[in-house]
């Protein structure tokens, strides 16, 4: 199945992602990011964040629960670009309500033919309904191999 503009607006069911302390610690350790902002409350209180937060890319670790309603060929998908937009700091202990939506579908002509792009925005809201962050994933959808369905 190829992409088309009619997919814009299709959204996942909302799901809850918990910002678990142990998971944040393991994530920071795997990256080798030892910033005390993620584990030292006293240090973090004196920063612009006014308290502990999570590594800037941690939000991807929360996305693995999304059940996406598009049937796409994973072998054709390539992660092209990633963006995080922070409206307010994400806190350890937050329960974020996440909804993934197709926000754009477009074509671009490159060396190996026409490539399709799919933009997926995951909006993350805190329990009081305030938008905390958006994780924007741009997927390159490569042309189907000739002879394959």
């Amino acid at each position: 199945m190829d992409l088309d503009k009619s997919m814009i607006g299709i959204a996942s069911k909302p799901y809850i992602a918990e910002v678990d302390r142990e998971r944040v610690t393991r994530f920071a350790q795997a990256v080798g990011d030892e910033n005390p902002l993620y584990f030292d409350e006293t240090y973090a209180a004196d920063t612009a964040y006014e308290g502990m937060t999570v590594p800037p890319t941690f939000l991807v670790a929360l996305g693995s629960n999304a059940k996406f309603p598009l049937k796409l060929d994973f072998k054709r998908m390539l992660h092209g670009e990633q963006e995080f937009i922070y409206h307010k700091p994400v806190r350890i202990g937050d329960r974020l309500e996440c909804t993934m939506t197709v926000t754009d579908v477009y074509d671009r002509v490159g060396k190996s033919g026409t490539m399709q792009f799919l933009v997926l925005d995951t909006e993350m809201k805190t329990e009081d309904g305030v938008l905390a962050a958006v994780s924007r994933n741009t997927i390159i959808y490569r042309p189907a191999k000739k002879g394959a369905n």
Binding site: N35, Q82, E83
Partner: peptide, 16 residues
């Protein structure tokens, strides 16, 4: 995040 130091927050961050 290190560049943001103690005075700033990272409000947008993107990579290709």
């Amino acid at each position: 995040q290190e560049l943001a130091g103690t005075e700033a927050i990272v409000s947008k961050f993107n990579m290709r």
